[in-house]
Nucleic acid binder design. Structure first.
Length: 787
DNA sequence: TGAGCGTCAATTAGC
DNA sequence: TTGACGCTCA
């Protein structure tokens, strides 16, 4: 083996070494950004195995994302070789699913249970509400689900909720809906993501012998990103870790940015109290960023109360100063960023080493436009996309049905996909019958003629659907591969035919997508091996579906190196040579909501935690940068179609002026925010604005814009801006037609959905417009724009 | 059954 | 401004 534990002292700094080699008691590793955390965890595991003789299968390492789990597994394989595969290295949810598949039958979860995603949950909740007679207009089903999820995160049952009734409608109905929802899931042999954890707690409580089995097995439990754990997760850890002898948690309270999703930093802050005698190791040496960047990050984060005292340092001193610019508006900001990025690329910086961050997804639009216009290859980094596409989910639903025909969410999803004449009325009758008989949707379909109210044609159609599911189930049961079942589903469901028959570009894209899923299933079959563990008697199809449910989008095949655009949240855990952090404005970042929360309502009682979390988010953003950090803001910004003038972000005011470099002169700070703003580093006074003419060429205007004037309350704005304000490329902001008399046959127009077409005829307030892809449509003229 | 249109709301997003 | 969703008419 390549790795020899005796080399550890030369591979790790003293603190890292202590964290990697400490044994015999609970351990909390406070790992600052870029302090070599993953390295410590992997060496720790390797050391346990090689120096202490711990068998790999006795080790459980949990992370929050599949990516983190994958990286850890990969690194460990390099140190330990194939035996690393025996360790359980996975996400909390995957761990939960794995244990529930083995032992969940004790609490009524079939081995073949399906995992409902958000869309499935929402659909199920809507049905539950309908059955319970709760008006979805009065009570938002999403909010109910959120309450339920929150309850699960805190380990609360419907009864617990019922004991503390609220005064509003939502609180009143939630306990009952929660109970009914769980019942519906049970009937469908399904679990949602929250259940993967909360039902595991339930299992451990109801079957102590099962808990004992796992507790005895896992001598060592390691947890990454511990500051992101919620209460159930911590509870599970405590259950599994017993006295905590073999428990090692790694985290950074300064990077806790998921409170809104149930995470509870106090898990980390109180760890030493929960496990008296716990060893605490701080990793403060940073191997990523320049000292300038670390100083800036520290200046921001030190304003927070209730944090573990620590400060990152690096021995590579200095570094380039921070950069800051104020743009006229968000378009100009985006263009400037694009220009700077282009300059970096021309200087030879690797596109993969450049990232642009923003607080909210909505901000990405202008940036995308600027990058597209500037021909800069970019990629929006976001979670899952492929498996979220409707057609992909449809085919996946057929696969899940093949394995678990009880799954009503899947049955209802595809009962009429492709359209096979089973309309809402028929579905409603089938649903009612299924509910009355206490059977699944597919079962009810099978009994076609027995379903009250069904016409003969409808009876035949639903029976045909049941037969389709039966056929697929038989195929899946006969140990067919995932690929074979997927192919059969695509063909026999009629999806393939329907896409081909439609023949539009869109349908062909969709067909490509579902075929890609079939391809993924085939690949899966080839690489799949049955687990040596007899408790895990999975088929390739079952394992494939598990991977889809838990892994989300596995394809990272972004062709070619591209600059990454992402939200600050998405940036956590990543690092780049050059980071552009945009929208450094009050109400954008920190977000309005957190500001309002902190200010409090009429009673004046505010909650500053949201703001503290925004501050941590800023810290996370800063510490992603290795060498260069560029901050930007816009003097005004179009938000929901309205112009807003925002103050510079308070976070800018926390950064010492000298970190921005001496070459730049500063205007007087804005009194209220006390922010240092460099206006002349990128002289926006010479701004180029494109107004774009019909001929597609841009006219360039130079405007005189003084930033030194405080824009509040009603700032004077350059006259030239008004007509062109905040415009995306000309085409999209074309003048809206006021009346139908404004154009005649032969006028080119644009429609939001169909794109550009030609007016053929006008009748009253409608126009017949011929579009290249969809032919002639009659459309109200107010939905048309002149081109 | 679905395209077309009105209405309403509006962080962040992992599994 | 964009988007998601639900109602309604052909």
């Amino acid at each position: 083996m390549a790795f020899d534990p005796s080399q550890l002292p030369s591979l790790l700094n003293p603190e890292q070494l202590r964290a990697a080699t400490h044994t015999g008691g609970p351990l909390l590793v406070l790992a600052g950004a870029g302090s070599g955390k993953t390295r410590v965890i992997t060496y720790r595991i390797a050391n346990l195995v090689l120096a202490h003789g711990v068998e790999p299968w006795r080790i459980l390492a949990v992370t929050f994302t599949n990516k983190a789990a994958g990286e850890m597994r990969e690194r460990l394989e390099r140190l330990l070789g194939p035996s690393a595969g025996e360790a359980w290295i996975s996400t909390f949810h995957a761990t939960g699913a794995r244990i529930l598949r083995r032992d969940g039958e004790i609490i009524g979860l079939p081995r073949s249970f399906v995992i409902y995603d958000e869309a499935d949950q929402l659909a199920e909740m809507k049905r539950v509400m309908k059955a319970a007679g709760v008006d979805p207009k009065l009570v938002d089903p999403r909010k109910v689900l959120h309450r339920i999820d929150d309850a699960k995160n805190h380990g609360r049952t419907p009864d617990d909720l019922a004991k503390r009734p609220g005064w509003d409608e939502l609180s009143r109905v939630t306990p009952d809906l929660y109970r009914r929802y769980q019942k519906a899931l049970a009937g469908a042999g399904a679990a949602d993501f929250g259940d993967l954890l909360s039902r595991l707690v339930e299992l451990f409580e109801k079957a102590p012998d099962v808990l004992q089995k796992y507790r005895a097995r896992f001598q060592h439990v390691l947890v990454d990103e511990f500051q992101d754990t919620n209460q159930v997760q911590y509870r599970l850890l405590k259950m599994l870790a017993g006295d905590g002898r073999g428990l090692c948690v790694v985290g950074d309270d300064d990077q806790a940015i998921y409170r809104w999703r149930g995470a509870d930093v106090s898990n980390l802050l109180t760890f030493p109290d929960d496990f008296p005698g716990a060893e605490v190791v701080k990793l403060e040496r940073n191997y990523r960023s320049s000292q300038v960047i670390l100083d800036a990050a520290h200046a921001v984060i030190r304003q927070n109360r209730n944090r573990m005292d620590k400060r990152l340092w690096t021995d590579s001193s200095g570094g380039a100063p921070l950069e800051l610019f104020v743009a006229r508006d968000e378009r100009s900001e985006a263009e400037r960023v694009a220009d700077m990025v282009r300059a970096s690329l021309q200087r030879g910086v690797d596109p993969l080493e450049i990232a642009v961050f923003y607080r909210t997804n909505a901000q990405s639009r202008v940036l995308e436009e600027a990058f597209r216009f500037g021909r800069i290859p970019y990629v929006i980094v976001r979670g899952r996309s492929f498996y979220e596409r409707a057609e992909v989910k449809d085919l996946a639903a057929y696969l899940r049905l093949a394995l678990n025909p009880l799954s009503n969410a899947d049955a209802l999803r595809v009962i009429n996909k492709p359209a096979r004449g089973i309309g809402d009325t028929t579905v409603g009758r089938v649903e009612a019958a299924a509910a009355a008989w206490g059977v699944s949707i597919v079962d009810a379909c099978r009994q076609g003629p027995q379903v009250p109210g069904l016409a003969a044609a409808a009876q035949r159609k639903v029976q045909a659907f049941a037969q389709l599911v039966d056929r697929l189930a038989r195929l899946a049961g006969s140990e067919a591969s995932a690929g074979e079942v997927a192919e059969a589903a695509l063909r026999e469901s009629g999806m393939e035919e329907a896409f081909l028959a439609d023949g539009t570009d869109e349908s062909m894209d969709r067909l490509d997508n579902v075929r890609e899923l079939v391809g993924a299933a085939r690949e899966w079959d080839e690489s799949w091996e049955p687990s040596p563990d007899p408790e895990e008697a999975a088929t390739p199809l079952a394992a494939f579906l598990e991977q889809i449910a838990l892994l989300g989008d596995a394809d990272e095949k972004t062709a070619g190196p591209k600059v990454a655009l992402m939200t600050l949240h998405a940036s956590k855990g990543l690092e780049f040579e050059e980071v552009f952090l945009t929208g450094m404005e009050e109400t954008v970042f920190p977000h309005v909501r957190s500001i309002r929360e902190a200010e409090g309502g009429d009673d004046g009682v505010g909650d500053p935690e949201g703001l503290a979390e925004e501050r941590r988010l800023c810290y996370v953003g800063f510490t992603r940068a290795k060498r260069r950090l560029v901050l930007s803001l816009a003097n005004c910004r179009a938000l929901f179609g309205e112009l807003k003038f925002n103050e510079p972000s308070r976070f800018l005011g926390d950064v010492p002026r000298e970190l921005f470099g001496a070459a730049t002169s500063l205007p007087a700070p804005r009194a209220s925010a006390g922010v240092h703003v460099i206006y002349d580093q990128y002289p926006e006074a010479e701004a180029d604005i494109d107004l774009g003419d019909e001929d597609g060429f841009e006219d360039r205007y130079t405007i005189d814009y003084s930033f030194d004037q405080r824009p509040a309350p009603q700032p004077a704005r350059p006259a030239v801006r008004a007509p062109a304000r905040a415009g995306p490329p000309r085409s999209a902001q074309a003048t809206r037609l006021a009346a139908n008399g404004d154009f005649v046959a032969g006028t080119p127009v644009r429609h939001a959905m169909y794109g550009v077409g030609m007016v053929e005829e006008i009748e009253g307030d409608r126009a017949s417009v011929r579009f290249p892809k969809v032919g002639v449509k009659r459309i109200l003229t107010r939905f048309l724009e002149a081109v």
